[in-house]
């Protein structure tokens, strides 16, 4: 089980790096939001892996919190973004 969890953790770490690359590249706010959404899911998988390794149930509520946090984060960014590539340019234009 330990070996399996380490392999999984390696894959999750790699996906975290890829998602961080996408968040850095952008190009728009919404791209970053999508990447953040997947990053939250990867975080949930990570917490679940820890629980599976130690067979502990103490961290289970964190899973729930992260699920709802990812949802609220994506929705509020999508709701309040003006969908601009560059928010400062938009501010200046007004």
């Amino acid at each position: 089980m330990t070996v399996v969890v380490y392999i999984c953790a390696g894959m999750l770490g790699l996906s975290t790096l890829l998602l961080l690359a996408r968040m850095t590249m952008g190009p728009t706010m919404l791209d970053r939001t999508v990447a953040l959404d997947v990053l939250t899911a990867v975080g949930i998988c990570g917490v679940a892996l820890e629980a599976a390794l130690n067979r502990s149930t103490t961290t289970l509520p964190i899973l729930l919190v992260l699920t709802l946090l990812g949802f609220v984060g994506s929705v509020s960014i999508a709701r309040f973004s003006r969908g601009s590539d560059d928010i400062e340019a938009e501010e200046e234009a007004r």
Binding site: C8, L14, S15, L18, R22, V38, A41
Partner: peptide
């Protein structure tokens, strides 16, 4: 767990590689 982690990796590759936002 292994399949799930592999799929998460695929999702991350997709988010990085696919060309436009809706595909991502």
């Amino acid at each position: 767990l292994l399949t799930g982690a592999a799929l998460a990796l695929i999702a991350a590759i997709g988010v990085l590689r696919l060309p436009d936002l809706l595909s991502r």
